[in-house]
Every structure is written in structure tokens, then in C-alpha cells.
């Protein structure tokens, strides 16, 4: 193991950034893949693994990728929600790998909503 210099500390911290961010539950954006029974049977796991691979390949470190249960609209699964910080969350439906890739590049990275695949904006009203 080479001996480190003061500037190496930041390099190591940068290298570990993805791990720390996830643990603090903080990030520039949050992507939720809906993985209820319906979502899983419709292929949500494939969407998740596609995203995980893309995150690694493109070195995305400031976005949290997580799962949640059924979004309620089982007939339109697989679904995911993309929420850029300080922006309204957007739900996407009827996903496949290609659509996921496009949403990844355009919305998650580019910040531009993919209107064609979007189901709707905003959150549901709670009570």
C-alpha cells in the first residue's frame, strides 16, 4: 500500500462518495423503482439491474436508487419515480430496458423529463 499525502485523502473520500451518500440518505436526486408483487412480475427487477449497471458505468454517485412497493397502478407496471431535488417528482410507466436507458440519460442525468413515457407529475394527495 503506498503511503498517502494530504491530497490523497480527498481522492479516497471521492472514491467512497457513492457509499457515504447512500448511507446518509441524501443526494441530488432519488430514483424509486416500484417493486411490489405486480412490479416484480412485470419485470421491475430488470429495470433495477439496468439502472444499477448504468449508475456504475456512468459513475453516477450523487443519485440515490431505491425501491418501494406497488405504486397503485398495477396494470402499468413496471414503474419508477424520478425526483430531482427541489423539483416535482415524475412517475414513468410501462417501462422496459430501452425506455429506462433513455430516462436515465435524459432525465436523471440531463434533468429533462421524457414526456413520452411519463405517466404524470407530482405526488398523490395524502389525507
Amino acid at each position: 500500500m503506498p503511503k498517502i499525502k494530504p491530497e490523497d485523502l480527498n481522492k479516497i473520500a471521492e472514491r467512497m462518495r457513492r457509499q457515504t451518500l447512500l448511507r446518509e440518505g441524501a443526494g441530488r436526486a432519488k430514483v424509486t423503482v416500484h417493486m411490489g408483487t405486480c412490479g416484480i412480475s412485470a419485470g421491475a427487477r430488470k429495470i433495477m439491474s439496468t439502472l444499477l449497471t448504468l449508475f456504475e458505468e456512468q459513475n453516477v454517485e450523487d443519485v440515490i436508487l431505491t425501491t418501494s412497493g406497488c405504486a397503485g397502478l398495477c396494470s402499468r407496471e413496471p414503474m419508477m419515480t424520478v425526483e430531482i431535488k427541489d423539483h416535482t417528482p415524475v412517475k414513468y410507466a410501462d417501462l422496459d430496458e430501452d425506455k429506462t436507458r433513455k430516462i436515465f440519460h435524459d432525465h436523471i442525468i440531463g434533468g429533462k423529463i421524457v414526456t413520452d413515457y411519463a405517466l404524470g407529475k407530482g405526488s398523490e394527495r395524502i389525507s
Binding site: R15, M16, R18, Q19, L52
Partner: peptide
């Protein structure tokens, strides 16, 4: 190289960390 192994591990994306 060992460094690359470390880098790869640190760079690995996970969707959840379970901190027991």
C-alpha cells in the same frame, strides 16, 4: 492491480445499505 480492485468495490452501486 489491488488499487483497481479497491476502486471497483468503492464504485459499485447498491440500492440499499443495511447497517447492522
Amino acid at each position: 492491480m489491488p488499487d483497481e480492485v479497491i476502486q471497483k468495490e468503492a464504485n459499485k452501486a447498491y440500492r440499499a445499505h443495511l447497517l447492522i
